[in-house]
């Protein structure tokens, strides 16, 4: 226990200093203001975006200090974080997951694939971008987007 406490003290704070808060979105709803609980759905991603999303919630970027948090069930969530192009196998699962989130809810598309199909848009077995199956409220472009970009989008919702 003492060793652990000592290690925590020696390591100190490794989170990057918080950049200034971005302004709210133009048509911002009140969803997620102050606290945003998100369920992440991988609709058919190459896992590049997943690496960046996990980076967002790592000690270095620490998105939780802005009020955003990943949860295990859509029933606990305010919104859905979608990554990857929507494949046929995942289309109905994505719709079910989004419908399982209590309204009012927010859908955030992370990465080019989720926004407009990206490099996989012409592939067989693909339905289309997330917008083709569910309404998307916030888009974070990039292949993959950097954690800072994702956190910027989340902070626009939490306004912190």
């Amino acid at each position: 226990m003492a060793g652990l406490t000592g290690r925590i003290r020696r390591l100190g704070r490794i989170a990057e200093p918080a950049p200034p808060a971005p302004g709210p979105l133009q048509d911002a709803s009140e969803v997620g203001r102050g606290s945003l609980q998100l369920r992440h759905v991988d609709a058919g991603s190459c896992n590049g975006c997943e690496v960046e999303i996990s980076g967002c919630f790592s000690p270095v970027y620490d998105a939780e200090r802005y009020g955003a948090r990943l949860v295990a069930s859509p029933r606990h969530a305010d919104g859905v974080l979608v990554s990857g192009v929507v494949t046929r196998n995942m289309a109905s699962a994505l719709v079910d997951a989004v419908n399982a989130v209590p309204a009012p809810r927010v859908v955030i598309a992370v990465g080019d694939c989720a926004c407009d199909g990206g490099v996989f848009s012409e592939a067989y077995g693909v339905v289309g971008p997330a917008g083709a199956v569910i309404g998307v409220d916030v888009a974070v472009p990039g292949c993959p987007p950097e954690p800072a970009q994702i956190i910027d989008a989340l902070r626009k919702l939490t306004r912190r």
């Binding site: 069930s73 859509p74 029933r75 699962a93 079910d96 997951a97 419908n99 399982a100 309204a103």
Partner: peptide, 10 residues
């Protein structure tokens, strides 16, 4: 009240 499908973890 809204009628929603039962969430069964997919």
């Amino acid at each position: 009240a809204v009628t929603a499908p039962l969430w069964t973890c997919g």
